[in-house]
Simulated scan of single mutants.
Amino acid sequence: MNYSFSFAFLANRWPALVEGVWLTIQLTVVSITLGFLVGTLCAVLRVYGNGFVRRVVGSYVEIIRNTPLLVQMFIVYFGIASMGVKLSAEVSAIIALVINAGAYTTEIMRAGIESISKTQLEAAECLGLSRVNTIIHVVLLPAMERVYPALSSQFVLLMLASSVTSQISAEELTAVANVMQSDTYRSFEVYLIVAAIYISLSFLYRFAFALVGAVLFTRRRKLGTAL
């Protein structure tokens, strides 16, 4: 084996990698935020909604969780375009990622909501809290606290899965790497660098989620419970 490593191409091409990383961060931060909101709303509807609403939300969750993200992305990108509405690759990527994240968040938050004991709900009712205030203050925040580690892991996985958006020409990190390796013929070096960047991003996201958890969940911070 006489392969000789060379990273000389980075001297001219590192700005493209930085742009790819920045777009990856933008795509995933927006998708995580919107996906969490969609998932939380769907979880509340699945637990407290009527039979029809629960079935609709359940169907959405099962369809998304049982189809590949790449297929979902193609449906959004090419399907919407075939109906005469042209969206950019980045917007299509965000829509697909939000839909995907929303389905997984629904199930995670549903588990958290259903873990809240009935005595807490009865206590809220005795205090005269409205149904909306009970859901927000008595149910959602404690539920999110209980499932926060699972949510954090799921959102890190979403960041890693965002690499498939390169298949619809979104110029994120993996797409930049694909172009770079085809130009330089240094596939091994390029993807080693990209792997290292994704590992760094994973640690960065986990650190950010830990900070958010420390701010939101003071009880966990005081007890030293993992976030």
Rank of each mutant, 00 (worst) to 15 (best):
I116M: 01
T225H: 04
N50V: 05
F9P: 14
V147G: 07
S166Q: 13
V71E: 07
V38H: 05
T106E: 04
G213Q: 01
T184W: 09
G128Q: 06
T33C: 09
S82E: 11
S169R: 02
N100C: 02
T174E: 01
I108L: 05
A89R: 04
S6T: 13
R219G: 00
N133A: 13
S92M: 02
L34V: 15
I94A: 06
S153N: 15
R219P: 04
V176F: 08
S31F: 04
Y77N: 04
E19F: 01
E172F: 04
A16E: 15
V179W: 03
T106A: 00
T174K: 00
S6H: 09
E107W: 00
I94N: 09
L34R: 02
A81S: 13
T225R: 07
P15I: 13
A226N: 12
R206I: 06
Q167A: 11
S6D: 15
Y205C: 11
Q154V: 00
A196L: 14
I199A: 10
A89T: 11
L223Q: 13
T225I: 15
Y148M: 03
S200A: 14
Y77Q: 03
P68G: 01
E107R: 04
V76S: 06
V57C: 06
E62Q: 13
R13M: 09
E171D: 12
L211K: 14
N50E: 09
V194K: 02
S115Y: 02
M144I: 12
F217M: 06
L216W: 05
A103E: 05
V190W: 09
P142K: 00
G84D: 10
L204T: 15
S117P: 09
I80K: 01
L45S: 09
Q26F: 05
A143F: 07
L223F: 03
A16G: 02
A226H: 12
N100S: 07
P149Y: 01
L97E: 09
A161C: 01
S166N: 10
F52V: 15
V47S: 10
F36P: 02
I63V: 15
V44S: 06
E62M: 08
E125A: 13
A210L: 01
V71W: 11
T165W: 01
F78D: 02
G224Y: 07
E171T: 14
A170I: 12
L201Q: 06
A89H: 09
F36V: 13
A208T: 12
L129T: 08
